[in-house]
Design a protein around this nucleic acid. Structure first.
Lengths: 201, 201
DNA sequence: ACCTGAACACCGTTCAAGT
DNA sequence: ACCTGAACACCGTTCAAGT
């Protein structure tokens, strides 16, 4: 039971090891370089071993996507909860920044997440995605209930607000911004948006 | 020289045939199903024949992406030019609708376009992308020059406006909207946005 | 000039077999 | 229960050879 283990991944944690390694490869080399055989080689296990833990390659990608939504969800709810007494604008800015930062830091993963979610048979991924965005989307409804945001078509107002964030996330995915640029842009965008969303005095 | 040709693709137009078929496969079956060997098979040519026209698979994908940007650019400039005397809001709404419709109709192609553009060595694709978005982005500068839109940080205002459209395009890519929903959403979004962008009375 | 056919390295998937 | 090794079908790429 040494501390510096020799076969760290066999017998029990191969699944976790595959996911970890897959995410590293995804970040460092991109989705096209991701192969089951390559992952098995990197970890030091036979090419058929992953089969025990993932039915096929898509199952591994789905697990990766689910993980990603999970972590993004954690980031987003943390952003909301770290500003408990704040106004809608402040809270929405915080979620927006967190989302766009995630897109910036995990561009390849985010692409994979949305691609995985697209497949009709990937119910678990879609469920994870729904959980992730549930909090942020209720922000608007809450703000409307408190009179901070104009009550129009609720869904429509939420969509417009979210579209701005989603748009910046798309741009960030292309590597256009660094973190401080993201904070500035999202801040300014929400301010401008609020001029349109705030009830007229 | 019959009208109903037998070997329609050989000798001269194999390149065009490959691109055409590739786009069909992309739309109908998705990017993962796209293979050079499969395309060659479908067209009725040896698996090595495409090599004459595309150095490798990525070269074909790049050509597909360039084509896509070209066509999107045509759609966008048409949208602008079809409303020559219109206000900024009307013209921006028209471009936005055209873009989001394109995302809805050619979701897989749009993904491929942005993925291709990402590769640093794909200068032609990036150039095509720049040409595509040049017109829409100058819309904001023009509107500012005419006093229709508040003059803040020019680039920043354009980015916010474009982010909304880009965000709806991202959502459309997931198949969330039909064409009439797109028209409504983009129209409403630009209206709301204008409340924030229009100079105060 | 344009295409073919064989060849090579790689991949995903399957399955009998080992411990 | 978990992994191995051989096998199969498929892919991208290369290259000598054909017309």
């Amino acid at each position: 039971v040494a501390i510096g283990v020799e076969k760290p991944y066999h017998h029990g944690n191969l699944r976790a090891a595959l996911l970890e390694r897959a995410e590293r490869t995804l970040s460092d080399e991109g989705a096209p370089e991701l192969s089951l055989r390559g992952l098995a080689r990197d970890i030091g296990v036979s090419h058929a071993a992953p089969r025990r833990h993932f039915a096929d390659k898509q199952a591994l990608l789905d697990a990766l996507a689910e993980d990603g939504f999970e972590r993004l969800g954690t980031d987003l709810t943390a952003a909301i909860e770290n500003a408990p007494g704040a106004s809608f604008a402040e809270r929405f800015t915080a979620v927006g920044r967190a989302y766009v930062r995630f897109a910036n830091e995990h561009a390849a993963l985010l692409d994979l997440m949305f691609a995985a979610k697209q497949r009709p048979e990937a119910e678990d991924v879609r469920a994870a995605s729904d959980r992730t965005f549930a909090g942020p989307l209720t922000l608007v409804a809450d703000a409307q209930a408190r009179g901070e945001v104009v009550v129009g078509e609720t869904h429509e107002v939420a969509l417009v607000a979210w579209a701005v964030i989603q748009g910046f996330a798309s741009m960030a995915r292309e590597g256009l911004f660094d973190d401080s640029a993201i904070d500035e842009l999202v801040g300014a965008a929400v301010e401008r948006l609020m001029l349109g969303l705030r009830p007229r005095p």
